[in-house]
Design a protein around this nucleic acid. Structure first.
Lengths: 188, 188
DNA sequence: CCGATGATGACACGCCGTGTCATGACGGTA
DNA sequence: TACCGTCATGACACGGCGTGTCATCATCGG
């Protein structure tokens, strides 16, 4: 029989999510999480860099994936088309059908300033990866930075709208609408 | 004679800046800052919410100011024109002529992940204020959010370009160029 | 002259995050 | 069967951050 129960990392995530929902992020101590998971405090910090990170671990590999996707898109594809394709994939694989889960996740993040900061950092990491992907395919650095930042803006604002609506409007439709709105606003 | 030396807050900022530059942000403890400033640790946290905040205190009132500026712009002015006017004012009053200072400031922020996170939070606070300013004048909420986020993107990317160049190109010129680049990229 | 105010000092304390060494299951090898 | 390296975890100490709380004492208005 194993010395330790398996899936320590997953158990920690599970315990943390439960406790955050029950009593809030700030009121939950790391020792409380590890106690529920049957581990020690030190082990928590071997799996997650800090207490906030346990809420963001699932999307850790997204930036590297996005960078590859952008860098390796077929030659000749327009930058905007690459972005839209990427956002469509993101919307379908990681958002569509999970609206309630994402709402709950956002509710937790919204309660704590530190968590909101960490979310911004994750968005920035995504933007930096996309930017580097475009630079890798030779796009002008400034244009790459602007487009990458704008893509995360489009995604974030659209997700917010998508979460606020009650009908079953597709996230990607909202993204396309947002892009049209942004274009119109910048051309005014 | 006064019981305490005046300008406690300014002395703390000064001491912190010096120590961060001398030995780095992470290696500088709050007690070290307060010792140099001739105060106690507890007093530091009465003036600044946390150790990072001492580097951002000077721009604390900017978001509220920006929100007012946007909300009270002459009726009929296009949203984009309001943004460009605001960015021009920002560029001229808080950036132009201070390039070396800002470079040093950014160098400190770049060394620490926590400081980079805090900088993102400040950008987000600016964007939220601008967004609320536009909503206050009746702009569509989604359009307000997109435009606000895009305006901070324009500013941030342009400042980065401006800091990297050695010639004396005006920041506002770079902003206008960036806007043109973004338009072209989104219309492709 | 007096009471309210408000900034600072002094002190205790809980929690975060890290360094370091010990422990013991697992897998490969002879 | 015996041995040995690997690796995740336990155990422990510790510095630093940020907060709660009460005391101190200049300043200011009445």
């Amino acid at each position: 029989m194993a010395r330790w129960q398996p899936d320590a990392r997953e158990r920690l995530q599970q315990a943390a999510l439960e406790l955050f929902a029950e009593q809030g992020f700030a009121a939950t101590t790391v020792p409380a999480i590890t106690e529920r998971a049957g581990l020690t405090t030190r082990t928590f910090f071997r799996h997650f860099a800090d207490k906030r990170e346990v809420l963001f671990a699932d999307e850790a590999e997204l930036p590297a994936y996005a960078e590859q996707l952008v860098a390796q898109a077929p030659a000749g594809t327009s930058p905007l088309a690459i972005i839209l394709e990427g956002l469509r994939g993101l919307a379908e694989t990681r958002f569509e059908g999970r609206r309630d889960t994402i709402r709950q996740w956002r509710a937790i993040v919204a309660t704590d300033a530190g968590l909101r900061e960490r979310e911004l950092q994750k968005r920035a990491a995504m933007a930096a990866a996309v930017r580097d992907g475009f630079r890798a395919r030779g796009l002008d650095p400034t244009r790459a930075a602007l487009l990458a930042e704008t893509s995360t803006t489009l995604m974030y604002v659209s997700v917010t709208v998508w979460l606020e609506t009650d009908d079953d409007r597709k996230l990607y439709d909202i993204i396309e609408t947002a892009l049209a709105t942004l274009r119109a606003t910048l051309d005014a």
